[in-house]
Amino acid sequence: MQLQFTINGEQITVDVNPRARLLDILRDKLGLTGAKEGCGEGECGACTIIMDGLAVNSCLIFAHQARGKEIITIESLEKDGELDQLQKAFIDSGAVQCGYCTPGMLMSCKALLMRNPKPTETEIRTAIEGNLCRCTGYIKIVNAVNSVVTNK
């Protein structure tokens, strides 16, 4: 079936298998491999993208559910060669280790800051409660988001 939606600012039409997940389409059809599959059941958040301004698990969404929606993936955070301040903060705070959770983590945090530029630490932790990380213990990730919040 034909599916139309906006991806990272560009309106596109793709042919999708009705049973395919949005994650499969992003990765296999559009070559946007930033979003990862870590569990396939919405528990780890590695596949997190932003759909109509909200963080969602792209592994729990059929591709066709994205019709007419506006989708942002990790690939669009860097603008004109300039990293988003969240990306910079992740690097500067040492919030990146193996990096596998990083795209999903960043998208959850981005979605939070889009709606709430001054979140409390509890709100940051709630925003990433569905993003698992085995490397960092989340501490430097929360620090990174906090540093963006306080620099605003």
Binding site: L32, T33, I74, I91, V96
Partner: peptide, 21 residues
């Protein structure tokens, strides 16, 4: 000195290729 991991930029931009990618 605490300097960032060598491939931090590829990781935060989602450009790094893991085998699955």
């Amino acid at each position: 000195k605490s300097i960032p991991i060598h491939d931090a930029k590829e990781k935060v931009t989602g450009k790094i290729k893991y085998v699955g990618d």
